[in-house]
Design a protein around this nucleic acid. Structure first.
Lengths: 167, 167
DNA sequence: GGCCGCCTTCATTTTTTATTGAAAGATTTG
DNA sequence: CAAATCTTTCAATAAAAAATGAAGGCGGCC
């Protein structure tokens, strides 16, 4: 914004860092993750050695809370690992380079639960449709059939995608 | 919230409608679409005849603007069609039941552009890495290689997914 | 046990995103 | 072609999501 004040971030981050960070912000936003998570993972992805939470706070200029919560999330999906550095008091973190971690977490945490609920919903919809008069009932069942078809399709596709991802 | 006032929505919407609406809100949110779009598509999906914008506003209790913009978006991805009803002044809308429309729109509008930008980014990253000292350079190229690998994997997967979706 | 450094949590604030509705723009009708 | 009806746009508002940082917890060390 202000051209007089130097951009703090660019002093602490190399151009390579920034490219990586922007890239991960963009992709992780796609699966609903906040900017701060993309920043943290992006920096760890190109870091040549483990970074402490303090390093992340300093270099990314993010808050303590954002760093802590972002790391928590990233660890929970297996995208970041803790490295115990001997003689170091604070924890250090490295990126797991296996990007499929994000995809599988997304599938497990977002997609699958929704599909499960959708299947239950479809059952309730069928029950509702049975009580309609035959003209509307016919249309309703047609639509519900469509939904079931897509659910099945999704459930067939999923294992295939997962297999493709993990190796 | 207030148990004294009856929920307006539930008076105008059948249980079947509500199941469908909730289901589409949930799935469309996954690909970044606002609630109002899920509501509109959900209702149109189970509607037994074409609905006007006014119908949508009344039954979903959403604003004129939300209805207009939501329909615009849904038409733009091909998920909703205009039906010209003879003798009717206002436009009427029906859902295209081909749910793949959402997936293909997401791929075309969100995923592909990001991948394109990512490829450009990776080139810049390689240029940056060439200027590093050999110790760090080695690590950097390793990571960049990882990124390239995933981009290629994604680009190989995409046509397959698209083919799977369209039929 | 008491102190210190590090990490997590969460109420508050900020930022981002979605919704609203009035005004302007089309389109049809008589 | 004027009036009426319907639709789009967009500035203002509301709602949702993310970031902040102070308070408190945990664990190691003296």
């Amino acid at each position: 914004m202000n051209p007089v004040l130097p951009d703090q971030k660019s002093e602490r981050l190399s151009r390579l860092d920034i490219e990586a960070i922007e890239m991960f912000i963009s992709f992780l936003k796609l699966i609903g993750l906040p900017k701060s998570v993309g920043e943290i993972y992006g920096l760890l992805f190109v870091a040549t050695k483990p970074l402490s939470m303090d390093d992340l706070i300093d270099r990314l200029q993010i808050s303590l809370g954002a760093a802590s919560q972002g790391l928590k999330l990233l660890r929970s999906v297996g995208a970041v690992k803790v490295v115990y550095t001997p003689g170091e008091r604070r924890d250090h973190y490295v990126a797991d380079l296996e990007l499929s971690k994000f995809a599988t977490a997304f599938i497990k945490e977002e997609l699958n639960p929704r599909m499960q609920r959708a299947i239950e919903r479809i059952e309730r919809m069928e029950a509702e449709a049975r009580g309609m008069d035959s003209e509307e009932q016919k249309i309703a069942f047609q639509r519900i059939e469509r939904l079931k078809h897509w659910m099945e399709r999704g459930q067939k596709m999923m294992p295939w995608i997962l297999r493709f991802l993990v190796n």
